[in-house]
């Protein structure tokens, strides 16, 4: 008892002295810490930069980008759930050209860390075209290919629920960029490892998972679905165990790094995700409830690491296997 307490105190001292290491590497891209706001929950960063210095974050994955500007789906697009929410935004974004000419300069002004570009499409060609354009942006160091958006028809998730299609998107994007390509997968599949393996075989540098789970709420007064599009993507703390399970499974199936996400709301959750096999961790829905959530997780990491006798986060990746 006495010994373990002494050890704990020692670890806290190490944390205080900044001797613990939160640094992680994603396909050669070094991040100060593994915490990354997830696409669609952080805009292009500058709204959050008004309330804190977002350079404390490891990286940032910006809003999913399509070739044409999109308003997105009809409203209501949000439904609250126990420990989470359903969204049906439908990839609202100004289109790749305006993202490059208007949004990225604003993001660059407040964020000096590596940026992850989240890219979506309605055809293989569109994925490749958007990727080629964003590849030219110097600060974009990783392309995250979203083949898992549940909120658009004839695109998004349809590419991520079939191994053959996901592989085809991967190959098409790999042809137009030398930067690391991470494929963001959907949990709405029978066997996520099969799709992850197909992406790896097609040349993917890494896998991001999980996107939202398809869900629905019904308004008892109106006796109709709350969301105009009827279904949407369920996220938040409630899906965390599903995400941990899928990251664990994919870590066993592939050798490429994984960015883990799904319901992460604390430094403790981030460590759990890394033990399951994630090399870095994205924070999504938590940002919408507490705009300081990602910052707090970064700040709490050393303390939480000390609590569990962890001196280097890189060393715990996949540690639960």
């Amino acid at each position: 008892m006495v010994d373990s307490k002494t050890a704990e105190e020692k670890m806290i001292n190490i944390a205080d002295a900044g001797m613990c290491s939160t640094e992680v590497v994603l396909s050669g891209v070094i991040l100060d810490n593994p915490i990354i706001p997830a696409s669609g929950t952080f805009g292009y960063g500058y709204e959050f930069a008004e309330i804190y210095d977002i350079n404390c974050l490891g990286s940032l994955s910006f809003k999913g980008t399509t070739r044409e500007p999109r308003f997105g789906n009809a409203l209501p697009r949000i439904a609250e759930c126990t420990a989470g929410l359903i969204n049906s935004i439908g990839l609202q974004n100004p289109g790749v050209e305006k993202v490059i000419s208007e949004e990225l300069p604003k993001l660059r002004a407040c964020f000096k860390k590596p940026i992850i570009a989240n890219i979506c499409g309605f055809s293989i060609d569109e994925y490749a075209e958007n990727s080629a354009l964003l590849d030219k942006e110097e600060q974009v160091e990783i392309l995250e290919i979203n083949v898992s958006c549940p909120n658009i028809h004839n695109g998004g998730m349809t590419f991520g629920t079939e191994a053959k299609m996901a592989a085809e998107v991967t190959r098409a994007v790999k042809k137009v960029t030398k930067k690391p390509v991470y494929i963001k997968l959907s949990p709405n599949v029978t066997d996520i490892t099969e799709i992850a393996k197909a992406c790896e075989a097609a040349g993917a540098d890494g896998i991001s998972l999980i996107n939202t789970m398809l869900g629905m709420r019904i308004d008892l007064n109106k006796k109709k679905p709350v969301i105009a599009n009827k279904m949407g993507g369920f996220s938040g703390s409630a899906i965390f165990p599903v995400a941990v399970r899928m990251v664990y499974q994919v870590h066993e199936a592939v050798k490429i790094p994984i960015i883990g996400m799904g319901g992460v709301a604390s430094a403790r959750d981030a460590i759990e995700m890394m033990l399951a096999g994630a090399s870095a961790v994205q924070v999504g829905a938590a940002n919408l409830v507490d705009p300081f959530a990602s910052k707090k997780i970064v700040e709490n990491l050393p303390k939480e690491m000390a609590k569990y006798n962890i001196t280097s986060l890189r060393e715990i990746i996949g540690g639960a296997h």
Binding site: G43, L75, P76, R77, I78, Q92, V289, P291
Partner: peptide
């Protein structure tokens, strides 16, 4: 008034169309 996610412009849950383009009701 619109059903909101975050309330500060991050999630795009409450967007509406205006003559000057899409706007977020919350922001």
């Amino acid at each position: 008034e619109e059903r909101m996610g975050c309330g500060f412009g991050a999630c795009m849950g409450c967007s509406c169309k205006t003559k000057y383009g899409s706007k977020r009701i919350c922001k």
